[in-house]
């Protein structure tokens, strides 16, 4: 039997994940996610119960290798299409907040 302890995600971890994603969370959301993250991870822990000794790891579900394309250049998207969904743009550039 592999580990069956309950997961405890702490509030700081939730805040860190939110920081990585550049998302602002309210206090309620932080409480909610702290509890939900732990539950989600516990759910996935079920997988740990499977006996995987001697089973090679799977990196891809398809039994295919070496799918290539030739090095030929083709058409790109028209510029109007490229910027169509951009909420902000300037001189043909996408405009984004500064992130340092």
């Amino acid at each position: 039997m592999k580990q069956n302890r309950k997961t405890h995600i702490c509030r700081e971890e939730v805040e860190h994940v939110a920081w990585l994603a550049h998302i602002k969370l309210t206090e309620e959301e932080k409480n909610l996610f702290t509890e939900q993250f732990s539950r989600i991870l516990d759910y996935f822990k079920k997988i740990d119960e499977a006996d995987t000794d001697g089973v090679p790891p799977t990196y891809h579900v398809l039994d295919l290798v070496n799918i290539f394309r030739e090095d030929k250049s083709g058409k790109s998207l028209p510029k109007k299409e490229v910027l169509k969904n951009a909420p902000r743009q300037e001189d043909g550039f996408f405009k984004s907040p500064r992130i340092v």
Binding site: E90, F93, F94, K95, S96, R98, I99, V100
Partner: peptide, 12 residues
């Protein structure tokens, strides 16, 4: 300078 720019322009 990067730390003083009001925003970022992106060219892909």
């Amino acid at each position: 300078p990067i730390d003083q720019s009001p925003y970022t322009l992106v060219d892909y």
